[in-house]
Nucleic acid binder design. Sequence first.
DNA 1: CAACTGTTATATTGTTATTATAACAGTTAG
DNA 2: CTAACTGTTATAATAACAATATAACAGTTG
Lengths: 127, 127
Amino acid sequence: MLLRIDVNSGETLYSQLSNQIKYGIARGYLVPGEDLPSVRGLASELGINMHTVSKAYAMLKEEGIIIINRSKGVKVSEEALISRDDDYGKIFDKKMTELIAEGLCNGYEKDQFMHKANQLFDEIGGK
Amino acid sequence: MLLRIDVNSGETLYSQLSNQIKYGIARGYLVPGEDLPSVRGLASELGINMHTVSKAYAMLKEEGIIIINRSKGVKVSEEALISRDDDYGKIFDKKMTELIAEGLCNGYEKDQFMHKANQLFDEIGGK
DNA sequence: CAACTGTTATATTGTTATTATAACAGTTAG
DNA sequence: CTAACTGTTATAATAACAATATAACAGTTG
């Protein structure tokens, strides 16, 4: 899977990486069990520091999305698409509430929100 | 409207403020045309610095959500709930795509996403 | 043993967040 | 007119964070 980062996006590099990997899994570009590049390999490929990649991986590991083995490497968790963390519910609620509130302040009513969600799910290929 | 900030949340103070004001508008706690506290007043009330409040207000002004008058003060824009910024469409798409991808990685399928969105819209009182 | 894994440690640089003062310019009430 | 209020601008200090750079450590594998 192709990963790209933009140093001028305002978003931190590790956050960009983390988000793109999540998107890749959601989209099916990355499948559970699949190996991910090594921290050194990916850092070299992207032209960034090893620790920046390591931090992105650590965050994904914290969410249970990837599995890190100290000597074997990194792979997508077999349960990457399965609900497992109850604490995530609150985080998800907060994020969605923020998106809804901000959307409403920009003229996105419920109908439009739902329509856009449908559209994006279709693009991603979610069930 | 009651505003609260948490210095240990990880989220920046100005971002917390901005999000809460957006939520207040979406929820109807703040109505278009309504006056907002002065930068000094709100800073004092919250126990934070004037410039932190000013930054939050500047961001909301940038989004067209509030109106700032150098000598009269700050109020919610009359068009706070009306679509006006075409550039926001891309930002909204990106944010929702991130939420969908992350949700899928945590076991939130389309059905659950839609159900949660419906529920939160009901709570907020969106049409 | 050599080459690879992720991890840990230490240090440096640059940016951002937050606070602190102070001054400026426009508006409004007394 | 003055005093008290607006937001804005400037400058500075501190702390935290992001990113980089080296280096070493401890497992695993060919």
